[in-house]
Simulated scan of single mutants.
Amino acid sequence: MPHDTTRLHHVGHIVEDLAEASVLYGRLGFSVPPPSCPGMPRSAGGAPEPFGAANTHADFADSFLELATCLKAGETGRLPADTRLVPLEAPAEVRQRLVERIGETSADLAAYLDRFQGLHILMFSSPAIDDAAARLTSAGVRHGGVNTVRRAAPSGAESPIETIRYLEIDAQEPDTGTGAGTVPEGRVGIVADLDPGIQSARHLDHPNGATGLAEATLCVADEELTATYHRYAAYLGRRPRQEGEGLIFDLDGAALKIIPKSALAATLPGEELPALPALVAYTVTVRDLPLARDLLHRNGIPLRETPTGDFFVPAKAALGTAVVFRAG
């Protein structure tokens, strides 16, 4: 029977300063377009000003890396100068709810940053998201149901409108204080597969040769490994395989790696934990590993080797997350 979760859809890197992060990702060899941010006048007749949250993507054919930050009044200097404002244009009865939802998103991002700057979002891709929602419900996994949002598609896409359908997994106990759409390690959910006719219109070529999102690494306390295994087995409808002290959930062309704290030094030498549990790294595949390594050396990016032959940028040099490069 086909699985209803097939690969990684995206990971979200939450940063303090999006301008700084955009420059860093350029030095890492990713093509990152100007970010977008909601805009709203602060006074009647005034020009729209950024508020809430801003984000941008490094895109691949069937996945992407998200960079996001939250904004407070007067913090627009933390946005790149070319940030694209998206004015809120909606009927009054809808507009207020939009403002509330953007405020909720911004508050979530602020809470993540209070934990640490780094990875806090992990989304899996699904060709059948309604089936995935039904399976989660049958398995007793709390989630917010399938939501639908629409936005303008990029220029050159096959459709002028991009439809995004997603669900977010909630903490199993309503009174844990983690909030809706949040589990202990951050925001985890399932998103309908990206539309190839729309995704192909985005900038998919990267100077480092990156071709896709291959793996996310979650580190947990040793005593929480079994419970985390059971959670993700329910989320994904799959069983993992053992690899050393860790567990690997194999998806179609990608994977989730869950490691205990005791295995971090062997998995990512020299890395330190910001908190537990934590999404500590993501892995991208590249067409030419030596070429990617040379580009990073030229750009002054420090690198370390993994025991499996990959190389990675340490979290201290990459705003809180290790970035692993692997031959595709």
Rank of each mutant, 00 (worst) to 15 (best):
D131K: 13
T211E: 15
A153V: 02
V23K: 15
E100N: 01
F60G: 00
A134T: 11
R142V: 13
E162W: 12
G209Q: 00
T211N: 14
A19G: 13
V220G: 02
P290D: 08
C219S: 06
Y229A: 14
V313S: 02
L273H: 13
V220F: 01
S126C: 00
A266G: 12
E49F: 07
G320L: 00
A281M: 01
T217A: 04
D62H: 12
T176V: 07
H120K: 01
T5A: 12
V313L: 00
A318R: 09
G212Q: 04
T5M: 14
S126G: 03
P290M: 05
L289G: 07
G186F: 02
R326P: 09
R165G: 04
T267I: 07
T178V: 11
D252F: 08
S22Q: 14
G197M: 05
A133P: 00
E243R: 15
I190G: 00
N55R: 11
A153Y: 04
Q242E: 15
P41W: 02
S155K: 14
R304L: 09
P33K: 04
E100S: 04
P33Y: 01
A47G: 10
V146A: 00
L24F: 09
P33M: 05
F124M: 03
A81T: 12
A315M: 08
V32Q: 03
F249R: 05
T148E: 05
T105Y: 08
G46A: 06
E49R: 15
S22A: 13
L136S: 02
M1K: 10
I121Q: 06
E223S: 14
L218V: 02
A134E: 14
A315I: 07
I14R: 14
R42A: 09
A153P: 01
M1T: 14
A171D: 15
P314R: 05
R97N: 13
L67E: 04
H203D: 13
S200W: 07
G186L: 05
T69E: 03
S31I: 09
H120G: 03
Q199Y: 02
I164W: 14
R42M: 11
G189K: 06
A263Y: 08
G328L: 10
A221H: 07
E243P: 07
T76D: 12
V94N: 13
V191M: 12
G246M: 13
P38N: 06
R238M: 08
A255S: 08
R101W: 12
S22F: 00
L88W: 07
F249I: 06
L98V: 13
A214C: 15
H206L: 13
T56Q: 06
G140E: 03
G177L: 04
I248Y: 08
V313W: 01
I248D: 05
L225H: 02
H206G: 11
L289T: 11
A47C: 05
E224I: 04
R115I: 10
L276V: 05
P196G: 11
S125L: 07
R95I: 06
L8D: 06
R326A: 11
A180T: 13
L295I: 01
L251T: 01
G140R: 02
D250H: 12
R165T: 03
H57T: 12
I248V: 15
I258Y: 07
G270Q: 01
L279W: 05
L295F: 01
R84T: 14
A233S: 15
E49A: 13
G177V: 02
P240E: 00
L8W: 04
